[in-house]
């Protein structure tokens, strides 16, 4: 019996980027739980499965750093990774 896949909680406002990053993570063996905004993620903070949180830094409304701050204030214990660069470099070069 194989181990349950590890979970990535992915937050990115841009539809095409969010889906492509999700696809990449799924092909690398992760389960992806996607959100279109930091607010959507924060609403479900209490019920998130263990895993890591992946935040886009540049979003309208709350940006990645503000979401991270809110997560800390809300007592989040999951590790947080922030994606920077916005097309300057590939978002993720593999797991």
């Amino acid at each position: 019996m194989s181990e349950a896949p590890k979970v990535v909680h992915l937050v990115d406002d841009d539809d095409s980027v969010r889906r492509s990053v999700g696809f990449m993570l799924k092909t690398s063996g992760f389960r992806v739980n996607a959100f279109a905004s930091g607010a959507d993620l924060l609403k479900e903070l209490k019920s998130l499965d263990p895993g890591c949180i992946l935040l886009d830094i540049r979003m309208p409304g709350m940006d990645g750093l503000q979401v991270q701050e809110a997560l800390n204030e809300g007592g989040n214990a999951l590790p947080v990774i922030i994606m920077t660069g916005h097309g300057d470099v590939p978002y993720l070069s593999g797991p």
Binding site: D14, S16, V17, R19, S20, V21, F23, M24, T27, S28, H86, G87, P90, Y91, L92, S93, G94
Partner: peptide
Amino acid sequence: LNQPLTAIANYCEAARDL
């Protein structure tokens, strides 16, 4: 343009790994 271009790069790399 940056968004779709990023997405294209991601799909290509993911497909490569498959």
